[in-house]
Design a protein around this nucleic acid. Structure first.
Lengths: 213, 213
DNA sequence: GTCTATACTTGGATAGAC
DNA sequence: GTCTATCCAAGTATAGAC
């Protein structure tokens, strides 16, 4: 209270601290220029601050990049979780996934993820950090699958862990290929097909209150 | 004739030219140390020749890397094509794919591919080159799918292009995640599950000479 | 064709002024 | 906490001897 004056936006950006300004500049630099070009100097140029601040606040570029991944992951995870929670059937789940993919593609989140994973190959010490941050996505996916399959007679037959891993792999692989091929974007066609196939699969997950004892 | 003497191995390696020595050193360096660490100096150290030879023979490190990708791709493509040609049913195809994946993982080919794709993000000018070299794999996959589905009543319903893209995406995504997670290797479990599920899917692709006109 | 030596560039990271 | 200035390492690429 004592601090807040009439100068809204500026005061806010000061109060939020330089840390988040740096994190956001890092995210934007990855989006715009790719992992390899995201140096401390490039981030500083994007955010309009000094290069040395990266090291003062985060110790190293790598640690900043981890923080940036955490930041975007948290935002996206919350959104996906909400979308998934509002859904009960497999076709709906496919629709939500397709929608989320398109959104993330347009918003550049896909690119950040792809670049970070690509970058993990480049900086081996980033590997475990990123792997750990992928795990929640697999778990999220598995929970969604379990929920959607619940009540189906097929449920006990489905290896949900493998299925979740496969879905995340597919999502990621499609993202990397799309990213690679640029304008061709065959992933879009794939998701459209998925949306068409979804309703057919509903037969598979029909609640079978009748057939069960 | 005039050139070949009693000194077999040494003469051969001279005859084969420094170019292929450099290409092989590049492949091995990517396998062992990753894309980012594969500099002209590192490649030269691996192959035991001078750094300047990279530029003399290939002009730039990037061009050498492209040549290296072409080299491994050609070898693997030939092997996959032969394996696929010897197969007629979907379960067999899954078995072949699973086997190839394990082989490529053990042989380090998966790593080369993953690193190159990762690297493409790093060096944008590599992107189109690598994308162009992925296309034949999608085509190969599509042809295999078409062949295996031929005669099934489902064949006309399957969007083979999308399916092939999905399979390659899955393969690639699983490779990158496995590469990332290291010892966890959930992809192995996935392929085991795939092998178990395969026979069930045979029902789907049964030749239906009876039901057709 | 292959080597040594070196020019040039970029980026991580720190010291020290403010 | 933020800036300027700078050190140092690693890498691309070329010149020129052999």
């Amino acid at each position: 209270m004592a601090k807040s004056g009439p100068n809204g936006a500026i005061a806010r950006s000061i109060r939020e601290g330089t840390r988040s300004r740096i994190v956001e500049a890092a995210v934007q630099t990855i989006k715009e220029r790719g992992f390899a070009a995201t140096s401390a100097r490039a981030i500083a140029a994007t955010g309009g601050f000094n290069q040395a601040l990266v090291f003062y606040h985060f110790g190293s570029v790598n640690d900043l990049l981890i923080a940036a991944l955490d930041h975007t992951s948290a935002v996206r995870m919350a959104r996906y979780q909400a979308a998934i929670d509002s859904v009960d059937t497999l076709p709906e789940l496919l629709a939500v996934a397709s929608e989320a993919y398109q959104e993330d593609l347009a918003g550049g989140h896909i690119k950040v993820l792809a670049e970070m994973i690509a970058g993990a190959s480049a900086m081996p010490e980033l590997g475990p950090e990123i792997a750990a941050r992928m795990q929640p996505w697999i778990t999220l996916t598995e929970e969604a699958v379990v929920r959607v399959m619940a009540g189906s007679s097929l449920a006990p037959l489905v290896p949900t862990r493998d299925l979740a891993f496969a879905i995340v792999s597919l999502y990621l692989g499609a993202a990397m290929l799309t990213h690679l091929m640029g304008d061709a974007t065959p992933a879009e066609s794939l998701f459209r097909t998925g949306a068409k196939v979804g309703p057919l699969l509903e037969l598979v997950t029909l609640r079978n209150g009748a057939s069960a004892g």
